[in-house]
């Protein structure tokens, strides 16, 4: 007799399984594993205007810190990031600020420097038709991030820096999963550790150039991007925000390996990849066909050339994950 029970692939969803006899079995863990959004406290952070935007783009602006704290009830696994910001005087939507996220626990920063919010979080819409402030396109983290209140992981500290000469109010949300079922949490953690090896923990990392990119009209310049010594890094997505068009190249300094064949122009100068072929933004990031796995201590150079014939602030972000050797979380218990 023809057996078609497996002919059309597996049956079932995340919350239930259809058994061979046709009955449905609910996954009991789903009662204690819930979606959860972690916000700043208070939910809206007011950031004063940058009063001096000349000579540097935020010359006298100190970053404004805020805390994102979970209560002690259950661990949290961060998966998406979204934002919403408005001018406080007119209510007009705004996207001109930077963010730095720090984990006050033993883990290092989630980024090597502050990065532009349009390369970190969704929520501002895009030219592809997503409505401004639609929640449907958050940045999906390339690797989830665990916060366990029992292990000192109770809070993240974020810093906002205003790039406007007027005051804005910022909301930042990190969406994820709350595990009130400890066994489900431990299983998720253990799977993570199994993937990357005992004692290795992976977490998202946003890498940007070591110094801010501010190109004068038609200027070309090279910017270092050092991946830290504590972890390997894997590039998963590329995002940018800029005042105008530019060309870019990424070079691995170890062996001078280029990630393109852009070559030289007729004057012997370098040519590069047009920005819209290499970078998306947080809502629609460019996901390369192959990730780039870089071992610790790798130094990259990012070559950039302005095409806008005007001053061009360029923010590029390599949305990555770090794979870190460290003490096993399980050994700490």
């Amino acid at each position: 007799m023809l057996d078609l029970s497996r002919a059309f692939g597996p049956v079932g969803g995340r919350a239930y399984t259809v058994l061979p006899d046709g009955s449905v079995r609910l996954d009991r863990a789903k009662r204690r594993v819930k979606p959860f959004t972690l916000l700043t406290e208070p939910e809206s952070i007011t950031v004063a205007a940058a009063t001096d935007m000349t000579g540097g783009f935020f010359a006298d602006q100190l970053p404004v810190p805020a805390i994102m704290e979970i209560d002690g009830k259950a661990p949290f696994e961060a998966r998406y990031i979204s934002f919403h910001a408005r001018r406080t005087d007119t209510g007009v939507l705004n996207d001109q600020f930077t963010v730095k996220i720090m984990d006050p626990q033993e883990r290092p920063l989630l980024m090597n420097r502050e990065i532009h919010v349009r390369t970190l979080a969704g929520g501002f819409g895009s030219s592809l038709g997503a409505a401004a402030n639609a929640g449907g396109r958050p940045l999906v983290l390339p690797e989830t991030f665990f916060m366990d209140p029992e292990q000192g992981g109770r809070a993240l500290v974020v810093e906002f820096r205003n790039l406007n000469t007027f005051e804005i109010a910022i909301r930042l949300g990190i969406h994820g999963v709350r595990y009130t079922d400890f066994r489900a949490y431990e299983k998720a953690l253990r799977e993570r550790e199994e993937m990357f090896g005992r004692g290795r923990i992976a977490y998202p990392f946003f890498a940007t150039t070591d110094r801010h990119v501010r190109l004068t009209a038609s200027q070309a310049d090279t910017f270092d991007l050092r991946l830290s010594d504590d972890s390997d890094a894997e590039l998963v997505k590329l995002a940018r925000y800029s005042d105008g068009n530019f060309l870019a190249r990424i070079v691995e300094m170890d062996g001078k390996r280029y990630l393109d064949n852009a070559g030289q122009d007729t004057t012997g100068g370098q040519s590069g990849v047009f920005m819209d072929f290499m970078f998306g933004d947080a809502e629609f990031p460019f996901i390369p066909y192959e990730t780039a796995y870089w071992e610790r201590g790798t130094k990259l150079q990012v070559w950039l050339e302005d095409l806008s014939a005007a001053v061009n602030n360029v923010w590029v972000t390599l949305v990555s994950r770090k794979i870190r050797y460290g003490e096993s979380i399980f050994e700490q218990r």
């Binding site: 199994e194 993937m195 090896g197 064949n261 192959e290 990730t291």
Partner: peptide, 24 residues
């Protein structure tokens, strides 16, 4: 457990452009 795929060390994302800058 798992180990890092050794082939990842020799694979990279790559952009292929026209040979001549003028054609890019």
């Amino acid at each position: 457990g798992f180990y890092i795929n050794p082939v990842k060390r020799i694979t990279r994302p790559f952009w292929l452009l026209a040979d001549r800058a003028a054609d890019q």
